[in-house]
Amino acid sequence: MAARLALIICEYCDTVHESVVLTKRERAYCVRCGALVQRDAPLSVQQLLALSISAALVFVFANVFPVIAITMQGLNNQATLSESVLALAQGHLTPIALMAGMTIIVVPFLQITLLCWLTSFAALGRAAPGFKGCMRALEHLRPWSMLEVGLLGVLVAIVKLAGMLDVHPGLGVWALAMLTVLVILISGKGIRRLWDDLEGLIP
């Protein structure tokens, strides 16, 4: 068992490597295809927990405060992220609303929730109920989280509308920017360290 854990298989070319101990910020690359196979885990479980809780709070701000406000001939209009998705769902192009809603609201929400759940138990030295399922769900969610694209989309929309209307970025944009950074930090493969940290405790 222990011997098997010390092997690392490159996911891009199937080459088997022996695991090595990396110092801070060191990375190991595959000898055959040059892909990244191992990096030292830069964040501890406590740090992951702290960042996940911050992300949860910022997520609320990013969804409650409007991201864009516009004025036109005395009329005001402003929209939060969820309002814009819902407005789009009213029309005849509901699938697009679904895609936008999934990638910038639902998937990040699930990622943050699962990370808070897993890391809060891990910080107490325990495996959370449903540990395996949650860890697998995180792996499948990762490609579908597109907050950084959403942030750029908000900025482009502001510039695009500025040509014809009076546009102001809302408070939500700042929250969205912070959320993007936090989610990039916590949603990577760093969470896989829990498999080793909780070795023997997983039911």
Partner: peptide, 18 residues
């Protein structure tokens, strides 16, 4: 996934200008 950009821009613009 960066090509989702245009989809999200249209979503936001449509939701705002009503």
């Amino acid at each position: 996934y960066w090509s989702m950009l245009d989809v999200l821009v249209v979503a936001l613009v449509v939701a705002l200008v009503q």
